[in-house]
Design a protein around this nucleic acid. Structure first.
Ligand SMILES: [Mn+2]
Ligand SMILES: [Mn+2]
Ligand SMILES: [Mn+2]
Ligand SMILES: [Mn+2]
Lengths: 162, 162
DNA sequence: CACATAAGTTAGTGAAGGCTAATTTTTATA
DNA sequence: TATAAAAATTAGCCTTCACTAACTTATGTG
């Protein structure tokens, strides 16, 4: 009886994993948008549809649709023909997405992946990294830092910003 | 003029990255399906709609639709009410997806992530890993193997198959 | 072999996330 | 300040990937 029961358990766990990946994909769009919007606001003073469209590689019309969805979901506010703002919830999501993105990118670089590939892969991987994995990445970054800090220098150089 | 040009270049590169992630998401469904189908064929002798549905956590109807799409795309063959087979192309895709999955999972475990989280995260991450990153994972696994291989033993134990 | 149950299929629905084309509003400039 | 250009919106279309409900086919059991 254990053989069959184990098999059933394994099937259920598999299904749960696939379900979690589907959930991550649902959040992904929102995370990328609010992260980008935060970057634009912080770096340009405002986030406009045309800026998002250019950076995402989609049309203005597509961005417009998505912004409406994000507004419906309480992550942004926007008035017709005006620029886009983050709600408090949106800002929080943006910060955490940004942090995760930063760590994943830095981790890949520390592991020896070239900067371009690291940046490209991080854009996808960031949405599929659990807290457990993120912690492991952080640990590795700590060790990598310590390893490359030359004895005598006060602190090892952090990652080489692009 | 370089300031503005650089900015434009950065925007284009960002857009390309997001485009690549969108492409990966399009391939993702196909990869997971053929990998699962290969596992079922190799482990159970055949792959049936009901098995896929149970393991993916979706309904039979959903699997049916997807199988039609995969058949249209030349990855599987199937006749009404019969089980599903991989084309040569489908089998190749399955093997490479399986290999990538295996490496990503083993890498996360070697990095210190618990087995459950590693398995869950690998299911999403596997689709966003470039060859460059996969190589870095392989290198790390090689080192990890070497590190934990006790001097005197011929070859360190490879990953503990689930 | 009849017939109940399991498996597979079909039809219809809906949201997400893309697109183009046409229109409206805002912004910049002659 | 007219008017041209840029930006945003709307409308309509398409594919993917989910679902439920109803139906058909296959399978297994008494
Ligand atoms: Mn990101
Ligand atoms: Mn991303
Ligand atoms: Mn897989
Ligand atoms: Mn997967």
């Amino acid at each position: 009886m254990n053989a069959i029961d184990n098999e059933k358990q394994a099937v259920v766990r598999l299904a749960e994993r696939f379900g979690r990946v589907r959930d991550a994909h649902q959040r992904e769009q929102a995370e990328d948008y609010v992260e980008l919007i935060a970057d634009l606001i912080d770096g340009h003073g405002e986030a406009r549809v045309v800026d998002l469209a250019g950076r995402l590689g989609v049309t203005n019309a597509t961005v417009n649709n998505t912004i409406h969805r994000l507004q419906r979901d309480g992550l942004v506010t926007s008035k017709p023909y005006r620029s886009i703002f983050l709600t408090e919830e949106g800002r929080k999501l943006a910060e955490s997405a940004r942090e995760r993105h930063r760590i994943v990118r830095a981790f890949l670089v520390a592991l020896g992946v070239d900067a371009d590939s690291a940046e490209a892969d991080a854009e996808g991987i960031e949405h599929h990294v659990s807290d457990a994995t993120l912690d492991a990445f952080r640990r590795y970054l700590g060790h990598a830092d310590a390893r490359e800090a030359k004895p005598g220098s006060f602190r090892g150089a952090r990652q080489g910003g692009a």
